[in-house]
Computed example of a mutant assay.
Amino acid sequence: MNFKGKDKRDAYMNTLYVHHDFNGKAGLTLGRMDLFLGQTGLQYDDTFDGAMATIGSKKLAADIGYGRFIGGNLGKADTKEERAAAIARVYGRSGRLAYDAEYIQGEDKYDARIWGAGLTAGVTEDIDIFGDYYQNTDYKNDPQTWTAGLAFGHYNMKKPGTFRIAGQYISAEKGSFLNDTTYTASAAGLVEDRNDINRSRFWLASADLVLMKNVRLHGEYAFDVKINGKAKTNYDDLATVSLNYVF
């Protein structure tokens, strides 16, 4: 947008929402908001347009909402206009346990009725086991997407030298995978990006190291990629390294 010249360009907001708390025990959010599903974000980690009502506390909370997934796929739906869905979630944390369960209902013609659950359990103060599981019961053959892994350490953006390393196995089937994941080195998206692949399986190793306050080095390495379907392609290992800043 040019405020001085005659050039006219569109202005837009990437994220815009309003939120109101009711005595700290309930809340209502309207607009474009961030949505992170599960314990790992494998299923979805992007924005969501709509309304979301929340009630509860850190130990146990519930969300009920309706809107549109901005990214990814939802069953047979593709465009943003088609990705309208109702969402119900319960989630919380108690001691060394973090847990969640979700239900996503899209329009009937898009075969999207997805339910899922996730769990992170602290075996010790430094070791976690974690996993997410999703299934679409409206899609042909009831496809599933899941991951299970083990992590060591916990990083804190305010504490340089803190770190976390993790390894996990990922399996994604077409129809159950929303395809807008938190991971940047992932072969899971192949099931939605290509019509000749219906399942993708692989190992993923990841690491985070806080270099200085509010600066984090992040790396991922996906390997042993296996696919099911008509495709004959062999996929190489995938890797990514990034610096993340918090302002």
Rank of each mutant, 00 (worst) to 15 (best):
R113V: 08
A77W: 04
A172L: 02
F22C: 05
D21P: 04
G118M: 01
G67A: 11
Q39W: 00
T162Y: 07
K213H: 15
L42C: 01
G41K: 02
R96Q: 10
F202K: 01
G116M: 01
G131R: 01
L178V: 00
V225E: 06
K230L: 10
H154P: 00
F202G: 03
G56Q: 11
I127P: 04
F22L: 13
F69Q: 09
A117L: 08
E125W: 11
R194S: 02
A62S: 12
G167N: 01
G131L: 00
G67S: 13
L37P: 01
L60W: 13
A222C: 05
G153S: 07
G189S: 07
G219D: 06
A121D: 05
L119D: 05
K80F: 12
L42R: 00
A61V: 04
N14Y: 08
Q168H: 07
K140M: 06
D100Q: 08
A62C: 12
G27I: 04
D196M: 05
D196H: 10
L37Y: 09
D236V: 08
F177R: 00
A61H: 07
G24A: 04
R83G: 04
K140S: 15
D7M: 13
T29P: 02
A86H: 10
L35R: 11
H154C: 03
T79V: 10
A11L: 10
L178N: 03
G122P: 01
A112P: 08
D63S: 06
S171E: 05
A148H: 00
W203Q: 04
Y183H: 06
Y134A: 10
G50Q: 09
T29G: 01
A239C: 04
L16R: 09
A112T: 07
W115S: 11
M33P: 05
D46A: 12
A88C: 05
A86E: 12
Y235W: 13
H218W: 07
T240H: 08
P143I: 02
L243F: 14
G167K: 00
R68F: 13
T124D: 09
Y12L: 11
